[in-house]
């Protein structure tokens, strides 16, 4: 070592600076190229999207507020109707909420099973781990609307197709999230239970679930929020609930916008309330029990 430094001349400050500048220049060039590509993609993407849209951006953007303004002014004229209309659409809202709640419940239970089956160290059949992972991936990848539309064709409209569609998607999403949580679970309790002869079900119920329950619940609440939005959207394509009513009131057009406004308000309040309540509980869950 000392030999080497003796023979090779000490690099001068100028050399180091040159080297540093060269590196910096290279780095700048790379990030410059990356930014240029990104900007190019954004701009060309915008023009392609604009060209393929029915109405162009430059013609449409000043009309953007026309529809909300129309709805607001009409709702304001008929503001006396609003409370009554909101009561009228309450059952539809409850149906939407029920779809979301049941779908979350069922999806979480299926997802829990999938996640345990696809976590290394916990799986009942370790050889089948890739199979269960692919099942979760596929369930997650199918948009709810596709399952819902196919089921509507088979079962007719109503809440059940939407519920099944959202539950399947939730199962896939939870299968992945929960298996990430499971990977952080301590395996010692499981081993302890195994040594006293507990079967797989008992090991999971007594050894794993208590460790991961706070995280599970927190994710489930987050999912409930997402599912309420999804359930409203599915209603819009014919699966019942508040989305269906919204579409009906939209197709009536001018003159019935007070109904649309009442539904907008109901949906807005619901989403904000659920958002606040669930984030409160999630903070508490993660604050007290989870890591």
């Amino acid at each position: 070592m000392t030999d080497a430094t003796l023979h090779s001349p000490q690099p001068s400050v100028g050399d180091i600076q040159m080297h540093y500048m060269a590196l910096t220049r290279q780095k700048r060039m790379y990030s410059g190229i990356a930014i240029a590509i990104f900007v190019l993609l954004m701009v060309s993407g915008f023009y392609v999207a604009d060209a393929r849209n029915a109405g162009g951006f430059w013609d449409g953007w000043h009309q953007m507020l026309d529809f909300p303004a129309g709805v607001v002014s009409e709702a304001w004229e008929k503001r006396a109707n609003l409370p009554g209309l909101m009561v009228k659409y309450l059952p539809a809202l409850i149906e939407t909420l029920n779809i979301a709640a049941v779908a979350t419940l069922i999806g979480v239970i299926i997802g829990l099973g999938l996640s345990l089956m696809s976590t290394r160290g916990l799986a009942k059949w370790p050889l089948l781990i890739p199979v269960f992972r692919r099942i979760s991936d596929i369930l997650r990848a199918i948009p709810e609307i596709v399952i819902a539309l196919v089921l509507i064709f088979m079962m007719g409209g109503g809440p059940v197709p939407a519920m099944v569609a959202i539950a399947l998607h939730t199962a896939g999403a939870m299968g992945k999230l929960y298996s990430e949580v499971n990977e952080n679970a301590d395996l010692k309790p499981v081993e302890g239970l195994e040594s006293v002869g507990a079967n797989w079900m008992q090991r999971m119920m007594l050894g794993v679930i208590p460790q991961v329950a706070p995280n599970y619940l927190s994710y489930a609440l987050l999912r409930l929020e997402i599912n309420i939005r999804a359930s409203a959207i599915l209603g819009f394509v014919g699966a019942g609930g508040i989305g269906y009513e919204l579409r009906n009131s939209m197709t009536w057009g001018q003159g019935r916008f007070d109904e649309a406004a009442a539904i907008f308000i109901l949906l807005f309040i619901t989403i904000v309330v659920v958002d606040q309540v669930s984030s409160h509980f999630r903070n508490r869950l993660i604050g007290t029990g989870g890591h």
Partner: peptide
């Protein structure tokens, strides 16, 4: 909070009134 609370569904409806169907 407002932008998140007004759901994607409602934004979609409002925007499709102004711009018509399409990727934009």
């Amino acid at each position: 909070d407002f932008v998140r609370g007004v759901d994607a569904l409602i934004w979609t409806i409002v925007l499709s009134r102004a711009f018509g169907p399409g990727p934009l």
